[in-house]
Computed example of a mutant assay.
Amino acid sequence: MKAVLSKEVGGPEKLVVEDVPSPSYGKGQVLIRVKACGVNFPDSLIIQDMYQFKPPRPFSPGGEIAGIVEALGEGVHHVKVGDKVLASIGNGGMAELAVASQHTVMPIPEGMPFEEAAAFLMTYGTSYYALKDRADPKPGEKLLVLGAAGGVGIAAVELGKAMGLEVIAACSSQDKVDFCLGKGADKGLVYARELDKDAQKKFSDDIKDVSGGGVDIIYDGVGGAYAEPALRAMNWEGRFLVIGFPAGIPKLPLNLTLLKSCDVRGVFWGAAVARDPKGHQQNVAELFRLYKDGLIRPHVSNTYPLEQSADAIRELMDRRATGKVVVLVD
């Protein structure tokens, strides 16, 4: 089978496409013929040895797949050969065949295309866990989404609206803000691509202006110099959700949390899934209902063939994507 391989530490330019043996599978595992693989920010980190997990090389990036069940290991009964499924696998998805643990494999809802299925679980799973389980949202509260036009960001915009929140989308360009407004955001603002002290103060003032004084929940999928000015625009007893750090890992002055009596809450969706699989299954069932009701739908902004997987990851790293980028394997 063909697979995209990380054989040495580095960026997308270090990836190669090679013919490799089909992966072996065992008890409690499912062999899936991959049709589509979602591209996510961790894919850019894992190939540079900058992610929490470092699989032994060579390995294929791609932790989110959709495809057809090829074979079943012992003890797998909830799906059968030929079923259309999606799965979260950590890595190994940018290949013609991939192996998934049975608890991560779920049938694709009726009418959901493979490319949407491959763009669904990680972004909506992360954002739903963040907002539902970590943010304690109350209808009418104000939600600020940083990096709102990206995969998890636009999922947070849609889910925030579905939860009855007032959603403010913050992006690096007006085109991205307009995209978010088209996906249901109530308001939007543009932040500078580089923030010095003056730009940080302006960003904080802009948040206060557009929100009418401050926000109750901050969904920070950007990090870097954007985190502190956002926190300065937090309302009393607000909740700051730590999602990711494409702009760098920020350092927050803890006196701000005291002055605002607010919380900083980490969001590690992957670990939460492993610790509470039943809660994860319940969340996914609720997400599928929201999809069926037309309240959420993955926005696949670009697709690439397997041989151009490196370009797909590069698009994400360069922050050019709006919504989700997907590699089509077949």
Rank of each mutant, 00 (worst) to 15 (best):
A3Q: 02
V9I: 09
G26E: 03
G26Q: 03
V39K: 01
S44M: 11
S44A: 12
R57Y: 06
S60K: 06
E64I: 06
I65F: 01
V69Q: 11
A71C: 10
G73R: 04
H77N: 15
K80D: 11
G82Q: 07
V85D: 00
V99P: 00
H103A: 03
T104A: 11
I108C: 03
E110R: 09
F120Y: 11
M122P: 10
T123G: 15
D133P: 10
D133G: 09
L144A: 00
G147E: 03
I154F: 11
A155S: 04
A155Y: 00
V157Y: 03
L159A: 09
K161N: 01
F179I: 12
F179C: 11
C180L: 12
K183P: 07
D186Y: 09
K187D: 07
L189R: 05
R193Y: 12
K202A: 09
G214V: 03
G221H: 06
A227G: 07
A230G: 12
N235C: 15
V242C: 05
P246F: 03
S261Q: 13
S261G: 13
C262F: 05
V264H: 10
W269V: 01
W269K: 00
A272T: 13
V273K: 03
D276L: 13
Q282M: 15
F288P: 01
F288M: 06
K292I: 05
I296C: 02
H299L: 13
Q308G: 09
V326P: 07
L328I: 07
